[in-house]
C-alpha cells in the first residue's frame, strides 16, 4: 500500500487530471471541427516552454507557463495572419505554423544545452508521468491530511487547479458554449459573441495543454483532446450527456491506462513497465474504436446488423 501511495498514486492523479482537463474541453473542439487546434497548440508551446525553462531553470514554474502562453497566442495570431494574407485554408496555415514553432523549440533545446538537463524532445513528446513521487505518504489516512496532501508534486496540484478551473468555466458558460458551438448565427442575434467564446475556448485549451504538457507530454494531450469527446459523440446526441460520458471515458483511460502500463507486462510475466502516457492514450483510442464499432445507434457494426435485420424482416 505504501508503495502504491508513494509511486503509483501521484502518477495516476497526474494522468487522470490531465485526461479530464483535456477531455472535457475536447468536446467543444470536436463539435466546432477544431479538433486539430489541440494538436497545434500542444506543438507550438514548445519554444515558449524552452525559453521559460532557460529563464527559470525549473520544470514546473511560472515563467514556463507564461512562455508557453505567449507562444500559443503568437501562433494563433500567425495562423490567422497567414490564412488571411495568403488566402490559404486553415489546415495548411496551421501546418506551417506548428511545424515551424516545434522546429524552433527543438533547435533551441539542442543549441542551449537545456537538453539532457531536465528537458528534451522525448520528454516533450512522452512526458514524464512516472517520475511523480509522493514519498511522504505512509498510509491511507494521509489522503485526508491537508499537510501531507500539500507535499504532492507541484505538477499534480497545478493540474488539479486547472482541471477545477476548466470544470467551473464549462459549468458557468455552458449555455454560451453550447449555443456558439451549434448555431453561431443565433448566438450572435441573441447577443452572445461567438468570437469571444471561441477566444475563451482557445485560451482554456492553451492553459490545459500547457499544464498537462510538461507532465504527460504532447501526444497524450492531443489524444485526450480528441478521443474521449469523439467516443462520447458516438454514444449520444445530447451535449450534457456527451460531456458526462467524455469525463467518464477520460477517468477510465487515465486510471486504466496507467494500471495497464505499470502492471500489464507483469501480469504477462515480464518484469518491466511500458510508457504510461502512451498506454493512457492507447486505452482512450481503444475505447473510441469500441464506441465507433458498437455504439447503440451510430456504431458501424450496429448499423450493419440493424440493416440486415430490417432487410430480413421485410
Amino acid at each position: 500500500m505504501e508503495i502504491f501511495l508513494q509511486y503509483d498514486l501521484p502518477s495516476i492523479l497526474l494522468g487522470t487530471f490531465a485526461a479530464l482537463a483535456c477531455g472535457l474541453l475536447g468536446n467543444f473542439l470536436v463539435l466546432r471541427r477544431q479538433a486539430l487546434m489541440g494538436d497545434t497548440i500542444s506543438h507550438v508551446v514548445l519554444p515558449g516552454i524552452v525559453v521559460g525553462f532557460l529563464v527559470s531553470h525549473n520544470t514546473s514554474s511560472l515563467p514556463m507557463m507564461l512562455g508557453a502562453g505567449a507562444a500559443a497566442v503568437v501562433s494563433v495570431m500567425l495562423i490567422e495572419l497567414i490564412r488571411r494574407l495568403g488566402n490559404i485554408e486553415s489546415g495548411a496555415a496551421m501546418g506551417v505554423v506548428f511545424t515551424t514553432m516545434f522546429a524552433l523549440g527543438v533547435v533551441l533545446l539542442e543549441q542551449t544545452g537545456a537538453a539532457g538537463v531536465h528537458l528534451d524532445v522525448e520528454h516533450a513528446l512522452y512526458g514524464n508521468l512516472e517520475s511523480a513521487l509522493w514519498l511522504e505518504a505512509t498510509s491511507l489516512n494521509d489522503l485526508l491530511d491537508w499537510h501531507k496532501l500539500m507535499l504532492l508534486p507541484d505538477e499534480v496540484k497545478q493540474l488539479f487547479v486547472v482541471t477545477l478551473l476548466i470544470l467551473i468555466v464549462i459549468v458557468v458558460f455552458y449555455k454560451e458554449f453550447k449555443l456558439t458551438s451549434f448555431d453561431p448565427l443565433l448566438a450572435t442575434t441573441l447577443g452572445f459573441s461567438p468570437k469571444i467564446m471561441s477566444l475563451l475556448l482557445i485560451v482554456m485549451v492553451a492553459v490545459a495543454a500547457v499544464a498537462a504538457f510538461t507532465a504527460v507530454g504532447s501526444i497524450l494531450v492531443i489524444a485526450m483532446f480528441i478521443c474521449p469527446a469523439a467516443t462520447a459523440r458516438m454514444l449520444t446526441d445530447k451535449l450534457s450527456t456527451q460531456l458526462f460520458i467524455s469525463g467518464v471515458v477520460s477517468l477510465l483511460s487515465g486510471v486504466g491506462g496507467y494500471i495497464l502500463a505499470a502492471f500489464g507486462p507483469l501480469w504477462l510475466g515480464y518484469d518491466f513497465s511500458v510508457s504510461a502516457a502512451g498506454m493512457i492514450a492507447v486505452t482512450a483510442g481503444a475505447l473510441q474504436v469500441l464506441a465507433m464499432l458498437f455504439a447503440p445507434r451510430y456504431g458501424i457494426l450496429t448499423r450493419r446488423w440493424q440493416q440486415k435485420h430490417s432487410a430480413l424482416a421485410n
Binding site: 501526444i219 489524444a223 480528441i226 502516457a277 502512451g278 492514450a281 483510442g285 473510441q288
Partner: peptide, 12 residues
C-alpha cells in the same frame, strides 16, 4: 487527431 495520437502513443 484520433489516428495520429493513438498510433503515435502505440509507438511510444
Amino acid at each position: 487527431g484520433t489516428v495520429l495520437s493513438t498510433f503515435f502513443a502505440l509507438g511510444m
